[in-house]
Structure formats: C-alpha cells, structure tokens
C-alpha cells in the first residue's frame, strides 16, 4: 500500500483513502461545441500512458475529498510530487520527462 502526500491535508496518507482519476492536465475545452471530431478524439479518448513519469489525477476521496495532481514514475511506482488542482506541471528537474 502506497503512501500518498495529499497537498491539501499536508501529510502522507494511506492509499486506501485515495482514488485514481486518470491523466492530469487535460483541460476540458471551452469551445466544446466547435471541436472537430479529431480534436474531441484526442481530448476524450487518447491518453499518453508512458513508461516512466506520468502526471495523473487523484482524489483524496475518503479524506479531504479534493482532487489533486501527482507526478509518478510508473517504473518504480514512486510519487515524485503531488500538487493542488489547477497548479502548473511542476519542474521535476532531470527527473521530469
């Protein structure tokens, strides 16, 4: 069981309190009505799923209930950092892809 740092609670909490919520930094376009089929496909269906560092959303659903973002390495299963929803992708230095 992982420990996940909730940026709203300010501490590491057991994974059981969290729920994964898909890839992060995919903003819902404001002009939904005008999107081409291709753009909608990219927005809704296509995910990067890389080996290595992923930016993903989590929800502290059984805690403070906030959605937040995390950078996690899918190889080591380590969280590099977590940050509040709406904050920009963090600079991970050499580690970030």
């Amino acid at each position: 069981m992982l420990l996940i740092h909730c940026p709203y609670c300010g501490e590491d909490r057991p994974e059981l309190e969290f729920r994964h919520a898909g890839e992060a930094h995919i903003a819902r376009p404001e002009n939904m009505a005008d999107m081409s089929d291709e753009d909608f496909e990219r927005f809704f269906f296509i995910r990067s799923n890389p080996k290595g560092i992923v930016y993903e959303r989590w929800r502290h659903i059984h805690g403070c209930a906030r959605f937040f973002n995390a950078a996690r390495d899918t190889v080591s299963d380590r969280f590099l950092t977590t940050y509040k929803a709406g904050e920009p992708k963090p600079d991970l230095g050499g580690e970030g892809a």
Binding site: E17, H62, G63
Partner: peptide, 10 residues
C-alpha cells in the same frame, strides 16, 4: 479529526 476509512467503509 479526519475523514478516513474503516474496513470497507468511510
């Protein structure tokens, strides 16, 4: 105080 889990419930 904290919302958390207890067994299979919140």
């Amino acid at each position: 105080c904290s919302r958390t889990v207890f067994g299979k419930t919140e």
